[in-house]
Design a protein around this nucleic acid. Sequence first.
DNA 1: CTGAAAGCGCTAACAT
DNA 2: ATGTTAGCGCTTTCAG
Lengths: 343, 343
Amino acid sequence: MAANRRPTLADVAREVGVSAKTVSRVLNEDGPASAQTREQVLAAVAKLGFQPNLMARNIRVGGPDTTIGLVIPDLANPFFGAVARAIEDTVRERGLTLLMGSSADDPARERALTDKFLARRVSILIVVPSVGADHTHLKAHRAAGLPVVFLDRPGTGLAADSVVSSNRTGAHDGVAHLIAHGHRRIGFVGDLPTKLHTRRERLAGYRTALESAGIPYDRSLLTSAHDQHGASDATVQLLGLPDPPTALFAGNNIVALGIVTELARSGRKDVAVVAFDDVPLAEALEPALTVVAQDPEELGRTAAARALARLDGDRTRAHTITVPTRLIIRGSGELPTDTAREA
Amino acid sequence: MAANRRPTLADVAREVGVSAKTVSRVLNEDGPASAQTREQVLAAVAKLGFQPNLMARNIRVGGPDTTIGLVIPDLANPFFGAVARAIEDTVRERGLTLLMGSSADDPARERALTDKFLARRVSILIVVPSVGADHTHLKAHRAAGLPVVFLDRPGTGLAADSVVSSNRTGAHDGVAHLIAHGHRRIGFVGDLPTKLHTRRERLAGYRTALESAGIPYDRSLLTSAHDQHGASDATVQLLGLPDPPTALFAGNNIVALGIVTELARSGRKDVAVVAFDDVPLAEALEPALTVVAQDPEELGRTAAARALARLDGDRTRAHTITVPTRLIIRGSGELPTDTAREA
DNA sequence: CTGAAAGCGCTAACAT
DNA sequence: ATGTTAGCGCTTTCAG
């Protein structure tokens, strides 16, 4: 049970009676090696349970480590989980290992994570930027060849590739759908903080949709929520207005859960809903939930692909890639004008 | 744009006109240092943008790296996302960085991941074992002091701590709930492969519940599914039987989504459902979904806490910790006997 | 309080 | 086909 030292290259070499370099050659299929020594080395490796120390190897080779750093707001948010898996799938064949962390949308935590990742000499950095985070400090790293990609939101103070959803257009489409079904008072429950890129863009889409339809913009219809519970409260608040909305637009997946749950709890089937982000069981609700679906897999794939291209020497100007959203009409946006008739 | 070398300790030392060791001392708050040199060193560090190379540091220190390796089946599965976040939250204050990967429940991928993590000298290894994976190879590492914890399922060939849900009891409770409401033909849609620990345990709970009630065990009521689509198919198959079930038990969260979606699609409100695992919007369904809720946060916290205790020298015998599940009754388990009356 | 030398585990660059 | 030397960036050890 003694915490005995892990075997090293030298241990293997000694066991076989060759030099360390020879063992290294066999294991990395570098240079030649006689079939006989190869056999013996491999046998000794197995016997001693030797595993090369990747950190030691990397420090010698000098290049970046075979890791990719990923900062997302919350590991438990299924949206970012899907993004993360797509990134992993994209970089796996390159042998990159994922270094991950949740920022909780806190700039300080985001910075702590990126600093740690940089200290580990990650070969790629993909970040979902927190509101208030500044990325100027990454300039030198980017200049030194480190691919940096911002995901879901643009970064600040650094010209790096960004991959975002078509937030404005998507929100516009969702709200326009509500308007097309006769709604003129549409509540907006956005994410927090209000400075969040996605929040601003989606609100902008909401406003242009109203404008196009000649509907006045009423600030009392704007609310915000950080979590499901907050969204539930916001729903109650909106429906309690003197002149309450007949429809609600959810700013993201978590907010959508809060709104839908609250409406079910209070038995309000007469309120139309469209959500930004698809959610599980959207189809099984009554009415089924109409959504502006994002494509988290495509976001992740694209971000990873950009980063790999940079790693492979792409030196073109940094640019922003927009991944389209898709309006999935399932019914919840059509109340009360249409569906209500059936009831 | 030249990929200029990152500054090293030596660079900082040269800048200040002092030895590398002195810089090291200042940065690690090792040994003493005059206020003056400290100032100068810190200034130079800032000026050059120096960040110590954690890999180099670690190789010298020799101990395990400040990383924790985590292998889960799927980063995009919200259940494991919640587990991962709980682990992260628990180890963050210790300064550990998360190294993660999805095994896709493939033993080869699981092994590839653990090998990579071991090669990086992680200080902790937490694994959700795949069916068919063998963990004998971890024996030496555990003996050398590496904390290994199995999560959600026990490992194979290695006596290490495990943290699992009360699968059998939970499933029993869920099925008993259905029986209590008059159901005697209860379909089981389990996860795959059938050898999966959770599948076996939950099926065992299903069987004991039937036995206690004196209901015969009918193999034709057993189905399996690997994903949401498969669960939908299984539902169709079960409901198409000559003597179809009046209730369905879902073996996990993904299966639950498939069953509920399929029932909604086919308008079958007369089929009762209880699911293992809570899912978002369960409350908003009609009827609301009754579930046997797991506690992913507690699973993650407990696993991480066990691992940290081992890291701190706990040498007690390996044991299995069972995290209780909780039956949340919301209505869907009561059809058709009770709720049907209202309609 | 500070520095010089040695070495962590590995590999690049030369030998042989 | 194999071995030797040097050195990656850092810290430990031992001297000052």
